[in-house]
Design a protein around this nucleic acid. Structure first.
Lengths: 234, 234
DNA sequence: TGCATTTTTCTTGTCGACATATAAAATACA
DNA sequence: TGTATTTTATATGTCGACAAGAAAAATGCA
C-alpha cells in the first residue's frame, strides 16, 4: 500500500501548522510570488495546506501584525501594497538601522559571529557570480541580519529584519528590470564592513555602513525616478 | 423583561472580540496588573470574556508577535519577563528613537500635530501636579508617541511605541518605589522640546531629546543599581 | 432604461467538541 | 526509601459547522 492510498494520514506534527503556513506565506509575499494587493482566501489556503481554517487564521493574524498583509473587517484580507509614495520613510529607517546595527556589531560581536557573517558574505558573492538575483537579494538580507544579530540588540534586530523584508520586495522589482555592475561593488563594501567590525573600529563601521546604505538608496531612487510612474504602480 | 433576564444575549458586535481581548490584556500587562512571568489560561480568559477560545487565541497570537507574552508549545503561555540583565539594549534603542522621532517631528510636523502634542503635554503636567504616577507614565508615553506620529515615519513610530510600552512596565516599578522631583523637570524639558519642534530647529530637537532621554536612563539606572538585586528580580 | 430594494452568494467570525502532548500524580520495583 | 515507570489530569492544537456581514446579483417599479 503506497502512501497516496491512505487518505486519512495526518503526517504533520501537532503545533507545526501555524508555523508552516506563516513561513511559506511570508516567503511568497517577500519574493513577490504573491503580488501586493492580491486577495487571500482562508478556505483556499485551508485546502492547499490540508488543514482547518483555525491555524490558517492564526498565521494570518501574525502576518497582519507584522504589516505583511492587511485585513478588512468581515471582508477579505490582502497582501500589503508597497507604498512607493513614502519610500523616503523606508530609506530613512533603513539607513539608520544599517548604521546602528553595524556599530553595535563592532562593539559586541564575538568570534563565532564573524564566521557566520563571512558565510553569508561568501553566499552573496557566489550569487553575484552566478547572476542569481533572487539569491542575491536573500543572501544580502541574511548578511546584514547576521551583522545585526552580532550587535545583540533585539529591538534593532527586529526592526531591521522588518526593513530588510520590505527591502526584499522592493529590490525584487529593482532587479527584475535592471542588471548592472553594482552587486560586485556591494561585495567589496561588505568585505570592508567585515574588516571594520573585526577591528572593533566603531567609527569606521558607522561610516562604511552609512555609505553602503546610501549607495543602495540612491541607486534605487535613481531607478524609480527614471521609470515611468505607471509602470511601477503595482 | 429586563436585560439580565435574557440569558443568550450576545451584546457584542461581530469582529470586535479579538480587539477587546487584545486591548484589555495589553493594558493589564503594561500596567503590571498581570505580573511578568504569570501564566495565562485560555479557558479562564474565555470564561471571563464570555466568548470561545478562538478569538482569545487570536488575541494571544498578536500579543506574542509583539513580544508581550511568550508561548511554550503545547504548554501554557506566560507574560513576558522584564529582562533586567539587558536593560542597556533597551536604553540604547530608546535613546536613539527619542532622537530620531523628535528630529523628524521638527522636520515634518503640521500645525494640527502641535495641538495634539500640547494636549498630552498638559495632561502630563496635570498628572505630575496630582502625583498620579500611573497617569504620569501613560501620558508621558502618549506625549512622545504623539511626537513620533508628527514625524510621520511608521517604522520608527512602531518601534518607538513598542519601546514606550516596555518602558511603561519598567517605570511602573520605578515609581512604585520612589517619588521624587524629577517629573517636574520632565515637564519643563517637554516644553523645550515642543518649542524646538515648532521652530523646526532639527539640531535643537536632537540635542534636547537626547539629553531628555539620557536623563531618564541615568535616573532609572541609578535606581536599579541602588536597589537590592533580589528585590527587583520579578 | 435607470434607480431603489430585495434576494442571493460568499467569506469571514465564532462556537463547541475532540485529539494530543506535557506535566503531575500514582504506582511499581529494587 | 528512592528511583523508574505507568497512569491520570489538564491545557493546548485542531477540526467541522453554524451564523452574521458585506458585496454581488436579481428583482421591482417608475
Amino acid at each position: 500500500m503506497t502512501n497516496s492510498d491512505s487518505i486519512s494520514v495526518p503526517e504533520r506534527k501537532r503545533g507545526s501548522g501555524v508555523k508552516v503556513v506563516y513561513d511559506l506565506l511570508r516567503d511568497e509575499i517577500l519574493d513577490l510570488k504573491l503580488a501586493p494587493g492580491s486577495l487571500i482566501d482562508e478556505v483556499q489556503l485551508a485546502e492547499r495546506f490540508k488543514m482547518s481554517r483555525t491555524p490558517i487564521r492564526e498565521a494570518l493574524v501574525r502576518l497582519a501584525s507584522e504589516g505583511l498583509i492587511e485585513t478588512l473587517p468581515n471582508r477579505s484580507t490582502m497582501v500589503s501594497n508597497i507604498d512607493f509614495l513614502n519610500l523616503n520613510t523606508f530609506f530613512d529607517a533603513l539607513v539608520l538601522m544599517y548604521r546602528a546595527t553595524t556599530r553595535l556589531a563592532a562593539q559586541h560581536h564575538r568570534p563565532e559571529d564573524l564566521a557566520i557573517i563571512r558565510g553569508f558574505h561568501e553566499d552573496y558573492a557566489e550569487a553575484v557570480k552566478a547572476r542569481d538575483t533572487l539569491a542575491m537579494i536573500a543572501t544580502n538580507a541574511a548578511f546584514h541580519a547576521a551583522i545585526a544579530e552580532a550587535g545583540r540588540n533585539p529591538y534593532f534586530t527586529s526592526l531591521f529584519r522588518r526593513l530588510l523584508d520590505e527591502g526584499r520586495r522592493i529590490l525584487s522589482l529593482y532587479y527584475k528590470s535592471y542588471e548592472d555592475q553594482f552587486p560586485q561593488r556591494f561585495v567589496d563594501e561588505h568585505a570592508e564592513i567585515i574588516a571594520a567590525i573585526e577591528a572593533r573600529d566603531i567609527e569606521a563601521a558607522d561610516r562604511l555602513s552609512k555609505a553602503h546604505a546610501e549607495l543602495i538608496v540612491s541607486q534605487v531612487l535613481k531607478l524609480f525616478s527614471r521609470k515611468d510612474q505607471f509602470d511601477i504602480a503595482l
